[in-house]
Write a protein that binds this DNA or RNA. Structure first.
Lengths: 191, 191, 191, 191
DNA sequence: TCGTAATCGAGACGGTACGTCCCGTCTTTTC
DNA sequence: GAAAAGACGGGACGTACCGTCTCGATTACGA
């Protein structure tokens, strides 16, 4: 879109904050660009200048919300993945990230930005966070060399999306179950 | 709503057919109730009389499309599940069921009918088709007594939804992978 | 429409009564044929069989309501006309005739039956009741031979319609004023 | 409603013009807001933003159409009133004002804007144009001090409405008759 | 210190679809 | 075999937002 360097940081923050508030208050589906603009004290055009759509804006809101910044040690893949997932789920519990993620998965059926974000890992693929460390572990022998990292990542993402979409619990127990399902069968040798 | 016995079967079929055609032609998101009514040669009200929303209508379209009517033998849970999934995926390949299912999962975030249908397995949960036979197998000893059928079903559904939503392949190979992931880890070959 | 002799008098009465009730309760504009049918315990078709439209039905309701049956002596045109008008206004006060008449005048702009009824005196022209006796009075010399009966009738009707439409008072004082306005100027010689 | 200073004069004119055309072509009752919007090349909402209803819009159309701008001398009330009425009737003959006025009187039975406009003389009451000069004439002695201006105005309006509603002629002869009926009886030639 | 340009709020605008209402006709079912 | 009950095609309603487009008021900067 427009040159992001020209974004007024204050306005941008106000918009993102307004968007986050509104999801919490009325839910993703009920939020309109007009409402965000009004809440942020900003013209509609100012939003459209920087984001193509509601979904595009919420991709940014989501990624600011769910910022994994402390990466655990990658000694044991199981431990690592569990730690990451628990951290993410804690963020989910503390923010409105889950309804946003649900809204984005939903919007991905009609919005290109959301679709692209989901498919290309900004959100769902969790490429940098999930897949790469596992790939490294394979190379290092902490996972079998033929371990199918992509499949593991797909399973994890699938399980998370499913609960996000259907309102299931996203707690530590679920995190452990995901790790078990994704790493135990094939991961046996790692033990 | 209204007394279902007064529903005109011809109209109902015309509406469902029009809805199915339109998804195939322009995609779920682009379909409007008005377009369905026009295509079916029907007043808009005739649609609203019997269905609360586009999603409610497509729940019916979907379940007519994906009618599993030949149930394989339940001797081996693995074989059974694989057979069921392959059958469903064949129906998916032959119809517009996948975009509809994606649309419904999407709409479930804003439409109660779709949400209810999804949660209660009429569509995706595959409750009767997937879970019950597995439960039976546990009771019969063909699966370990402590096999977690609900978790197995959730995994299967999650994997399918994920591919439906992100446009991944839904072929026999995928069916086999689901079976492996869902039944091998805990179950082993029925011990 | 259909042969009126085949009307079931009971149903017809029920329909007319329901129509009268409904005007009193919710006003002419808000009444629908469906509501009348429901209230009368009758199918919509039964109403349409006998009347072309809501307006056509209310023409009948109105004329049953405002039935002038006691005609005063026609010795003095002024007295006669005053008596007639007072009688009509008393009926107006006792029934829902005024809102019905207002509704009919209104509907006459889009309903042929109402327009015809208004123009041809069933309601407004008051031909039989107003004009003819005056015409007779001219012939008898109780009014000047060149007295313009049509103009007198038009004035009377105009004044009544105006108050009916704009919600003005329709009382005995108004009746007297009409008589004065319509008969005094020209009627001088009658005195 | 909205801030009138933001109204686009061009759109507003286009809408009013479209409305005027359509009455002329298909009659007041058959005109729909949708048709006006389409004809004016305007979104429906743009009409609803500035007018509450079809009637509200036509109040404006009518008052633009029937703009009395040359006021005759008020020396002789009879002459004055006759001149005004002839002027108005000439405008009626030259425009679609009569069907609009009929439609508005009709709509006043179900639309508050039309009712208010009619009652408060913006349209039919002709309050400022008819009543005030007569009132002045009373004060100046050109009419008897006890001349009932309100009644005179009511009679004039009533007669006009009646012909408007029932399609009677609105010509100079009618204008003269109104003047005669309204001013001669009580007033005599200003005595 | 001031013009002058860019920026931005506010929201009007054309447009699309919504879900509702009621019309007048047609169909089914019940008595 | 008539008529209640109400489904039906149709058309307009008034509303909600979309994404684009003016408009002034407000800044912010170069002269």
């Amino acid at each position: 879109m427009a040159d992001p360097s020209r974004r007024s940081p204050a306005k941008q923050a106000a918009i993102v904050a307004a968007a986050a508030q509104l999801v919490a208050e009325i839910g993703y589906a009920a939020v309109t660009i007009e409402a965000i603009a009004a809440r942020a004290g900003v013209g509609k055009q100012t939003i459209y200048r920087w984001w193509d759509s509601k979904a595009a804006l919420y991709v940014e809101v989501y990624s600011q919300m769910v910022q994994v910044d402390e990466f655990p040690d990658m000694v044991d893949p199981r431990r690592y993945m569990g730690a990451i997932l628990r951290q993410v789920f804690d963020l989910y519990a503390a923010t409105s990230a889950v309804p946003i993620l649900a809204g984005l998965i939903s919007d991905a059926q009609r919005d290109d930005v959301a679709r692209h974000a989901l498919v290309h890992g900004l959100i769902g693929g969790r490429g940098p966070v999930l897949a790469q460390p596992l790939r490294q572990a394979c190379r290092d022998g902490r996972l079998p060399a033929d371990f199918d990292v992509d499949w593991a990542a797909e399973m994890a993402v699938a399980l998370i999306w499913k609960r996000v979409l259907s309102g299931g619990a996203l707690d530590h127990a679920f995190a452990d179950r995901i790790v078990a399902a994704v790493l135990s069968g094939e991961g046996g040798p790692c033990r």
